[in-house]
Each structure stands twice: as C-alpha cells, then as structure tokens.
Design a protein around this nucleic acid. Structure first.
Length: 350
DNA sequence: AAGACGGGGAT
DNA sequence: ATCCCAGTCTT
C-alpha cells in the first residue's frame, strides 16, 4: 500500500473547510500584527479563547504597542493579568517587550531563533507567531493540533516526549502547505477546537474523516493518549486580613512558587500560631479584634489550597513598617495591583 | 523526564 | 469529579 501525500488527503480538505467554517473574527485576527499575535498566543497558553477575549481587549486598549508595553511599569502589566493565571506569562511578556525595545528597536523580530529566545516564548508559540503572520511556515504544537494529528495519522504514546513527540512534529511539518500556511495553521487549530473535540467529537462534520486512521480503527476516543494524573496535593493557609476601616494590608509575594510577585494577604502556614504572629506584626501594645470568614478551597491544577481568612480589625496601623513589598491600601485601589482570584474573592466578600 | 505553574469551561 | 485548555520554565 502506497502512502498518499498528506498535502492531498489532509491539508487541502482542511483549507477548504476553513474558508467555509473556520474562525475569522477573533479579536486578535482583526488587523493582525506580530504584536497582537504575540500577546494573544501568550494569553492563550493553557487558557480558553472565551476566557482570554476580555483580557486581550483591555490589554491591547491600554498597551497598544510594543513600546507602550515596554514603557509601562511591571506592576501595571501584572494588574492586567489578575485572575488570568500563570502569572509568569505577564512578567515575561513585559520583560520581552523591554528586550525588543532595546535589542530590536521596538520592532518584533522575524527570525525564529531570536523569537524563541525571548522569555515566555517556546517553539510552539514562536512557530505560531511566524506562521499566522505569513512570515515563515512553522507548526504550532498546541492541544488542538496534537489531537487532530494524533488521531488522523494514528500517533500513539505520550506526545510530550521521546519518539512520539518527534513523530508528531515531523508529521505536522509535512502537512504545512507552501502557500496558505497561515490559513492552515489557523485551520488545524479551528478543526481541533470545534470539530475534533476531546470527547464530543463531530466526525460527521470533519473534512478529513475519510482518511482518519483513528476513526477507521474506532479509536478516536483513546487518542491522543492522556497522561496519568498525579494525585492532587492538599495544603492549608491562614490568610491574615489586616484591616483598618476600608484600608487593607497587602504584601508582595515571593517571586517563586504560587502567585509569584503578586500582592496578597500575609500568609501563615497552618502550624504557625496566629496570636503571637499578630502581636509581633502589629505591635503587642495595639488592640485588635479577630473575626473569621468561612474557609474555602481554592483549587489549582496541581494543588488544592484550603484558605482560612482571618480578619484582624485594627484601629490605627503604624505605617512606619510599610516597605517596598508591603502596602496599606484602600479597597478601591486594590484592583490596580496584580492579585490572585483568592484575594479578589475575599475582598469582594468583605 | 517530571513537576510547577491558575483558573475556568465543558461534560 | 475529571479532563483539558493556542505551553513554558525549572529542576
């Protein structure tokens, strides 16, 4: 049996399908630019389109250009990421903008090696930026593409490593057309996002269902191979909500670990005694009143955090302990900081 | 190669 | 509950 050219059996039907049924009105597709593609690709890492859209619109409205982003303060960029998650993306985005300003005169580089060297940009995102802007045919290797290729060409194994990883990249490269490679890059993602879905796949709508090996073998459901899930860890924190009227005390978190560099309530390990901590923190001579919010579970992909918010109402807080990484701030101004969903939830409920 | 890194949508 | 999302970086 001779192998048919993937361009004929796979690429062509998908291109035709896209012109009829592909997505063409996403915010970052209008007046496309390297900058818009870059920002959107970063936001879309592990994040759904629907979630990204409002963040993208606000971000582009406030940082309309690379130089504008480079000139902004990091804290201002972080506040635009509040609630979106994976906050190193924001820090890297800002850092990369300053690099582009300094090294490339504010113009986004068009060379793959230069792009992939920027912080926060890996091989998939670099390829997407070049391909979608019709600069160079490069594969994007996101969850959609992995699923479509793995099913159609029947690629088994964990696609993130070893032989399977190599195969999926080579196969995808062999499918990219010479001319409409920008359309193809968008099209194969759209196919994965709207037809070749993880579970409720719609093979009857698929332009390449005749040649799909997984479908012929009745193995669509089992591809791509899902990685074994680790058992989620659990942990528990006390969030110390130090309040004086409408003012809240916030601390900047460490640059490592969860919510790196974001503003948050002082956080105690569960084994740390609360009252001694308060006494040493606000001064043993100051009076305060304790109250408690209902604990809640903040669930992340790799850990479940039980959070106990402990409200400490103080009359007057001595602001001489305020430092660069600690602020006493009005409720209404908190949204101008980079904060996590957990902090936002607590503030909103008080 | 494995783990860390957020939060939410869909089922 | 569980899977998975336009992945990258660190260890």
């Amino acid at each position: 049996m001779t192998k048919k050219n993937p361009q004929e059996i796979f690429t062509k039907p998908i291109l035709e399908w896209w012109h009829k049924s592909g997505r063409k009105d996403l915010p970052w597709q209008k007046e496309k630019s390297l900058y818009k593609t870059w920002v959107s690709e970063i936001m879309l890492q592990q994040t759904q389109v629907k979630t990204v859209i409002p963040y993208f619109l606000k971000f582009l409205s406030d940082f309309p250009s690379i130089s504008g982003l480079a000139n902004a303060k990091e804290s201002e960029v972080m506040s635009h990421w509040s609630g979106l998650g994976y906050y190193s993306r924001a820090r890297n985005l800002h850092k990369a903008a300053t690099i582009i300003k300094k090294e490339y005169g504010g113009k986004f580089p068009q060379n793959f090696d230069q792009i992939v060297a920027l912080p926060g940009i890996g091989p998939s995102t670099a390829g997407a930026i070049l391909s979608l802007n019709k600069i160079e045919p490069r594969p994007i290797m996101d969850g959609n593409v992995k699923r479509v290729i793995a099913r159609h060409f029947y690629v088994e194994g964990d696609l993130s490593k070893g032989d399977s990883k190599n195969r999926i990249w080579k196969l995808t490269e062999s499918c990219i057309p010479d001319s409409e490679f920008d359309v193809f890059t968008q099209a194969i993602m759209d196919l994965g996002a709207t037809v070749c879905l993880p579970r409720k796949y719609k093979c009857e709508q698929c332009p390449v269902n005749q040649s799909c090996i997984a479908k012929r073998k009745n193995m669509v459901e089992s591809l791509p191979q899902k990685k074994a899930r680790k058992r989620k860890k659990k942990t528990e924190y006390n969030f110390m909500v130090i309040r004086s009227g409408e003012d809240f005390l916030l601390e900047r978190r460490d640059s490592n670990g969860i919510w790196p560099g974001l503003w948050s309530f002082p956080t105690l390990e569960i084994n740390e005694k609360v009252r001694p901590w308060i006494n040493s923190y606000i001064g043993v001579s100051n009076s305060y009143e304790l109250s408690y919010m209902d604990p809640f579970i903040h669930s992340l992909s790799h850990i479940d955090i039980k959070i106990n918010p402990i409200i400490v109402d103080v009359n007057d807080y001595k602001t001489d302990t305020i430092s660069k990484d600690m602020i006493f701030i009005k409720r209404q101004k908190i949204k101008s900081l980079g904060i996590s969903k957990a902090v936002k939830k607590i503030i909103d409920e008080l």
